[in-house]
Amino acid sequence: MNDKTPSATGWLSLLCRVLLGGLFIFAGTLKLAKPQGFADSIMGFKMLDVDAHSHIIITMAYVIPWTEIIAGTCLVLGLWARASAGVITAMLTAFIAGVVSVILRGIDTKCSCFGELEWPCTGGVGWCQVIRNCVMIALAIPVFIWGAGSLAVDRPSNT
């Protein structure tokens, strides 16, 4: 455990990584509970041809939620915090690109980012999901700057 005296930045990092990691564990678990629904949502983004790339869509329906859960768990525990925040930020960036692509192409589809729960967004894919993902990326910034912070498995020099 981190034996350094807790500081304000340490507690801020802890708060951000527990919030962000917890959200990702929650999102991944909801998706894994309904993989068919998530596969339908991936198809709804119309970025892959269903006939030509069905195996990729099915693989993504499992790999994305599992990666969310594993990276989220590492982040909550403060284990390899910067790397897990990096994985989550990379995923959020990809999600933003996908959502913007859907908006620009005028496709009416659902996000299923949090399974059937889309709080605080309602309706189909839109700018609300982009803003929500940007807020989540902002939660990763303190972890990048100050590391895992307080109550972390990582040692201060190893975050």
């Binding site: 693989t59 599992w66 990666t67 594993i70």
Partner: peptide, 8 residues
Amino acid sequence: GILAGLTH
């Protein structure tokens, strides 16, 4: 994550 997803 990828290995867990592929296994699942």
